[in-house]
Write a protein that binds this DNA or RNA. Sequence first.
DNA 1: ACGCAAATGCAAATCAGTTGCATTTGCGTT
DNA 2: AACGCAAATGCAACTGATTTGCATTTGCGT
Lengths: 147, 147
Amino acid sequence: MNQKVSDIFKANKIKNTVQRQRVYEYMTSCKEPITADTLYIELSKDKSFDDIINLSTIYRILELFVKHNLVLKNSFGNDHRATFEMNLREHKHHLICVECNKITTIKGCPLKTYEKDLGDLTNFKILEHRLEIFGVCPKCQSDKNSH
Amino acid sequence: MNQKVSDIFKANKIKNTVQRQRVYEYMTSCKEPITADTLYIELSKDKSFDDIINLSTIYRILELFVKHNLVLKNSFGNDHRATFEMNLREHKHHLICVECNKITTIKGCPLKTYEKDLGDLTNFKILEHRLEIFGVCPKCQSDKNSH
DNA sequence: ACGCAAATGCAAATCAGTTGCATTTGCGTT
DNA sequence: AACGCAAATGCAACTGATTTGCATTTGCGT
């Protein structure tokens, strides 16, 4: 059992279970957002545990982590499935390849001053924004050219 | 039969049917994005036609229009349902009130130069982006203060 | 007006996600 | 270290949105 993870659970009043440990640890190792069923498949591959975590348990754990702000939930582009990623508490955006659906995380943001101007203009209290940029990744560009 | 609409269909090689006319005309009258089943309900209310368009037909028509770029498909915030709106072929963004879910369309865009820089940096061929800004609209702000 | 490909209606299937309920597990208490 | 019970899990059945197969109907070129 990873001591650090159980401490995080304790701090959030989240009961410590094997399943939650496994989901948390796998999520931490992910560099990009992941869907619930991909997570299910990946965790099922791990032979160091005898049993497979039930998919509905994975959904329940992910929603719990989202509720505690440990994890962020999104959905991108054409893919209507939700994706999840650890909440690193940094402002970022996603660059999504329209061919292969690969998601690349972009740090930094060009919108700080724009939000202020927009708030002044519309009298909305601006809270946050979501920016997704769509394009074709280098790999898919070269795959296309070779046909 | 609206002559203008059938001309648009002809120009797009879309076979002219009563159902497609009705969907097209209703969509044109919408100021904000609409879901397939709201569209279904609204069209069903119209007593000037004897029959109700089947929901799966509505989905098929919407997808057809999306394929022809007459209509744009989105989905916002937590709502997992797809929304559709006429493609007015102008670049815009949406400002969504987190209290009442009202969607306000914003013309103009602060991201033109950013996209170029990002393409240079990542070697992606940047195609488009989606920016949604979340906040509290003036009405919901004053509703809150009066409690 | 005819014929046929394409569009529609309908019902059944699918896909992602959720829920009810019986069983199991973690954890505070003794 | 064992007990008890609320909370978590597994499983199967359900839901809501969307899609699909197929029989019937409709639009449009000839």
